[in-house]
């Protein structure tokens, strides 16, 4: 029954997404209905096909596309604490918003001239991303919510993996505009192939930094060690390793974010 709901929502979301495709607005959110999926890191003894090993995700709203430069600039102009000249060292490293031309406009706003306004905002730390979402009365998505949306109910899994690995294989280039590729089955754009994205709990994964002994317990108190559910999913390994290497104050040339919101 939830799959029918899903189809309905996809049917509605897709054309809506296509219609609004031109007007690039991350304000537009898509409702992801509740569901479950096999997370990449599982309890060591569970079998990945086992229903009990699936993670339940409650319904939530997620931005259809990553937050872009134009939207972030609007936020910065109303929240001087997050302006590159004012930002605190504890909240971001020295490369905050490096890709915006100058940090000082006439009225203290940052100048967007050399950055594509429709491209996803990058060079933002977790704190900046969280602050932006809070200002919209939203929040960052959890890692489970984000992965669940990417997973797209296993639709076209092989091609998705290939697309992701191809993106990893290409050296860094400035990100293109959002919504350049078709949306997925949920009606969400750019979960793969554009940028890395922050999640609310990026710092929760148990894979030790030397991920070869993912079976070992390096964290404490929980219900046991975790291991990967699918050793062939190189794309997922890379996403989790990437999150593992981050600290909240880090920025990255191709690291951005989108927001989420609880469903009422």
């Amino acid at each position: 029954m939830s799959s029918n709901k899903l189809k309905l929502i996809s049917l509605l979301a897709l054309p809506a997404a296509l219609i609004y495709g031109a007007a690039v607005s991350a304000e537009e959110m898509v409702m992801i209905p509740q569901g479950s999926f096999t997370p990449f890191f599982l309890k060591k003894d569970s079998v990945s096909s086992n229903a009990a090993s699936k993670v339940k995700v409650a319904a939530f709203w997620i931005d259809a596309a990553p937050v872009n430069n134009r939207e972030f600039q609007a936020f910065v102009s109303h929240h001087p604490d997050w302006h590159p000249t004012n930002i605190k060292k504890i909240f971001s490293d020295a490369h905050y918003l490096d890709h915006w031309k100058s940090a000082q406009g006439a009225d203290g706003t940052a100048d967007l001239d050399t950055a594509n306004p429709d491209a996803p905002v990058v060079n933002v730390s977790w704190f900046a991303a969280a602050a932006y979402c809070e200002a919209q009365d939203k929040r960052l998505p959890s890692t489970d919510e984000w992965e669940y949306t990417l997973n797209d109910n296993d639709r076209d899994k092989e091609n998705l993996q290939k697309q992701i690995i191809r993106w990893y294989s290409v050296p860094n280039r400035a990100p293109l505009s959002v919504k350049g590729q078709p949306a997925n089955g949920f009606g969400v754009f750019d979960l793969a192939g554009l940028i890395w994205e922050w999640t609310a709990d990026f710092n929760s994964y148990m894979a030790p930094p030397d991920s070869r002994n993912s079976g070992d317990k390096t964290q404490f108190c929980g219900s046991g060690s975790l291991s990967a559910s699918n050793l062939d999913d190189y794309a997922a390994f890379m996403r989790y390793s990437y999150r593992e290497s981050l600290k909240g104050s880090f920025t990255g040339k191709n690291l951005g974010f989108r927001c989420a919101k609880d469903a009422k």
């Binding site: 930094p209 030397d210 070869r212 990255g252």
Partner: peptide
């Protein structure tokens, strides 16, 4: 541990 790997996971730009 890890021949150094455990101590050296590094994000881009770091």
């Amino acid at each position: 541990p890890g021949g150094g790997a455990a101590a050296s996971l590094t994000a881009p730009g770091h």
